[in-house]
Amino acid sequence: MKRSALLAPMLVLLTLATPTESLYAQYERPVDVAPTEEDIGSGYVTPAVQRPLPRSTLLNITDIVLLLGAMGISAWLGLVRRSRTGIVVLAIACAVYFGFYRKGCVCPIGAIQNVAVALTDPSYAVSYVVIAFFFAPLVLALLFGRVFCGGACPFGAIQELVVLRPVQVPRRLDKALGLLKYVYLALAIWFAVLPAVERDFIICRFDPFVGFFRRTGPAYMLIIGGAFLVLGMFVGRPYCRYLCPYGGLLAQLARFSWKGVTITPDKELDCGLCAESCPYGAIEKMRAVRTSCLSCARCYTACPRERAPARGDASVESHEATG
């Protein structure tokens, strides 16, 4: 175990690399009568089979670095710089890169099932990229809360951008619906640990937004996605809050996070403007609830204390948020 831990970085470099010739299955040919280079003459050289190489190790590492960077910036913007504009820009950038450019794969949400399979099926493994994408946001959640949701997740970003006229979901209903994601998480793990023939990757199958990123997909997928976006105009981030199984994992880890969003820079006014500004119902008793705070930074813009004093005060140590 220890040795493999030490070897891991080296192995990453080795095996993120091109899965080479072994991918191409053997084919018993009936005859072998192709003309040789000598037959063809005039210095003809048989060209190599055009075989585009898989995504390079470097690009895979770039993805991981970009994810870590996005989450780092998200944490900085949300917890230190307290910039709503910055968060929006970051979210758009991540939606463009991880969503539209990378077509929503690899994503940590779907990786739940792959990781579950890899933990239970000895013949199944997940790649280093999947491991990195699955674990990095969890570690960041332990440190800074759900900063992945706030700035790095393309699904979050696409919903963040459609929030138009959010209503405050009644607290009890909100809490009840919030339990759905744990049901979904349990179902996802159940379907993942089934024997290989019955295994079903339900998270990917019912992924609501990946069809938009790929601009193609089964009709039901696009319809579910469209419904979530329309709903998302009035109910902030419905998928993240009520259904995202990875959000459930992050929420439970964020409960114990080291730092978290603190709304007022120094002393609260008890004005409640922040709570009204939060489309996700994540502010209770003037404090951001770490399990449901998505680090979107809207509350700062609503806070009179944030606007009034000099910016320099922003980093002043303030009240702990409730856990």
Binding site: V31, D32, V33, P35, E38, D39, G41
Partner: peptide, 11 residues
């Protein structure tokens, strides 16, 4: 000839 023989892709 230019193809150094018969052309027999059929083998």
């Amino acid at each position: 000839n230019r193809t150094r023989g018969f052309l027999i892709p059929n083998g």
